[in-house]
């Protein structure tokens, strides 16, 4: 029988980074635990060692300086939803954080966990933060670096041990945003497809800049740049956006899952685009 995992409760960021470095590939960070604790259902072994981030104060802060919102990786979905409520620019984030999973999970699951779980295709925060042009901070004993979220998503599966996602930076832009997710049950589920949208408008009310991110359709969320380009210069019109999305949706290869086939996820994208646009009004 394998020994049960060890657990070290870090009380500061430097202690956490030290502990992760020392444990190397044997160790992993644990914040809310909502994904790691389901390892038995996935028939995955636990790591030999976990470094608890719960008691690291730096990771729990939400701050705003110089027009940049900085969200600690240890902030839970519930706290994030509350913190950004009522701000049209961040509505996409409030909805992503406030509607994912269920209330008890939202009280435990963290921003960092949502972004770092490579096998979780239906994560709500990922597309929401992508459309907000977020950056992430990766810290290690050697120092910190900052990189765009999209870049992080492409390297997260190969992140060396000892490196920890510590913060997310969301630049303020004066845009308006919306999050359209499609669970199978009305009451709530992991969404089968997500469209996150953030736009700025020119003085004539036309779309000056659009950022669209698509989640849950493929294994990793990504920006839909062709649609973004197609939207620029158009009025904020749900039908028009729907038409543009219909023409471009074939660039997605939907993932087949137990809950929904790939074609379904792609089929509903134009509807979600329209819903997101209409929600901006």
């Amino acid at each position: 029988m394998t020994a049960s995992p060890s657990f070290y409760a870090a009380s500061s960021l430097s202690a956490a980074l030290d502990a992760l470095a020392e444990r190397g590939p044997q160790g992993a960070p644990l914040a809310g635990g909502t994904w790691i604790m389901r390892a038995p259902i996935r028939h995955e072994p636990l790591k030999p060692a976990y470094v608890g981030l719960d008691g690291v104060p730096e990771l729990g802060r939400i701050e705003e300086t110089d027009g940049i919102l900085s969200i600690g990786a240890g902030v839970t979905h519930a706290r994030l939803a509350e913190a950004v409520a009522g701000r049209p620019e961040l509505r996409v984030l409030a909805e992503a954080a406030g509607r994912s999973a269920n209330p008890a999970i939202r009280r435990a699951a963290t921003v960092g966990g949502n972004l770092c779980t490579t096998d979780f295709a239906a994560a709500d925060l990922v597309p929401a933060l992508l459309c907000l042009d977020a950056e992430v901070e990766i810290a290690s004993r050697g120092g910190t670096e900052r990189l765009p979220l999209a870049a992080f998503l492409s390297l997260r599966h190969s992140l060396e041990p000892g490196r920890l996602l510590t913060r997310v930076f969301v630049p303020r832009s004066g845009a308006v945003s919306a999050h359209a997710r499609l669970p199978l049950r009305k009451a709530g589920d992991y969404p089968t497809a997500i469209v996150s949208l953030s736009v700025t408008r020119d003085t004539a009310g036309r779309i000056a800049q659009a950022r669209v991110a698509v989640g849950s359709v493929e294994t990793v969320a990504r920006r839909w740049t062709r649609l973004e380009a197609a939207l620029v210069g158009t009025p904020l019109c749900g039908e028009q956006a729907h038409r543009a999305a219909t023409e471009l949706a074939d660039e997605f290869a939907g993932r087949d899952g137990v809950e929904a086939p790939g074609w379904y996820r792609v089929s509903v994208l134009p509807v979600l685009v329209r819903r997101a646009v209409i929600a901006l009004h």
Binding site: F7, A9, L30, M37, Y50, A104, I105, R107, A108
Partner: peptide
Amino acid sequence: PLVACLTPAA
């Protein structure tokens, strides 16, 4: 309220 099944004792 938290779900005790996903909350490690630590």
